[in-house]
Computed example of a mutant assay.
Amino acid sequence: MQQFLALLGALGTVLALISQLLAGSPSSGAGGFPVPPPSSQVIVVTDGLGDVHVNGITVGQPVDQIRVLHEGFPEDGTVVFLETGDTRVRYDFEGAEYYVAEGVVTRIGMPHTPEGIRGGSGLAEATARYGRPVHGYSSSNGGRYAVYVAEEQLNLAWIFEYSGRSVRKVYLDHSLDRMRRDAAAVVRPMLGHRSTGSSS
């Protein structure tokens, strides 16, 4: 059954990629990602099962498999610290950033979501499309982030780095549950300090 679902997912990906190619992918905005040459525009699509494919690569996919399927995927990456404090190896490939831990892609940085939220989009657009954010946080380098549900079943979150009210960068991350726990941990201490309204 799992093989059938995997085959069905792959077929959905191929059909979605063909559809996207025929319709034209949204153009890259000023999201902070390298803009690939016109001949290799970043393709961001969903497969109908909730997964997001960026140039045919998904969060949760092993790097070894990616190298077999995508000629030219880099052998060497750059060790980076995420705004969450986690360490990842980042691979830049065809206009997107792939963040890997223990040989598996855990985050993808891309110019835009399949629905067209990109650098320069307003956070209000993201909220209109994905609902209320599940978490918001700041990093030690001053970055600000809003987290939205991307796909509940796959534990995927959209993380938008923003400035003012505008999106700067777009990430798809395998961390929805963690982000919800982090949000709950922030709220609990705040509730403990709330005044009850009675005076003594």
Rank of each mutant, 00 (worst) to 15 (best):
F93G: 00
V89H: 09
G85T: 11
L156S: 09
G116T: 03
S140R: 15
V100K: 07
L123W: 12
L156E: 03
F81V: 15
A128P: 01
E83K: 09
F81T: 15
Y91Q: 08
A126S: 08
A128Y: 04
Y137V: 06
A126C: 04
S140M: 11
N155Q: 05
P111D: 06
E83P: 09
P133K: 03
A101D: 10
Y99V: 12
P133E: 00
R144Q: 12
Y145N: 08
E151V: 13
F93N: 01
E115S: 13
R88W: 07
A150N: 08
F93I: 00
A126G: 05
E152N: 10
R107F: 13
V80W: 04
H112W: 06
A96C: 04
E151R: 12
A96Q: 02
G136I: 07
G143Y: 06
V149C: 00
E102Q: 15
L82W: 08
G136N: 12
A157L: 02
E94I: 12
F81W: 10
R144G: 01
G131F: 10
E152S: 03
E102H: 14
D86F: 10
Y137P: 03
G131K: 08
A128H: 10
R107Q: 12
E94L: 15
T78N: 02
V134C: 03
G119A: 04
A96L: 05
E75D: 09
Q153R: 14
V80K: 14
W158V: 02
S140G: 12
A124Y: 09
V100F: 06
V80L: 09
G95W: 13
G85V: 15
V100P: 00
H135K: 10
T127F: 00
R144N: 13
Y99Q: 09
F73A: 01
G95M: 10
T84Y: 05
I117W: 08
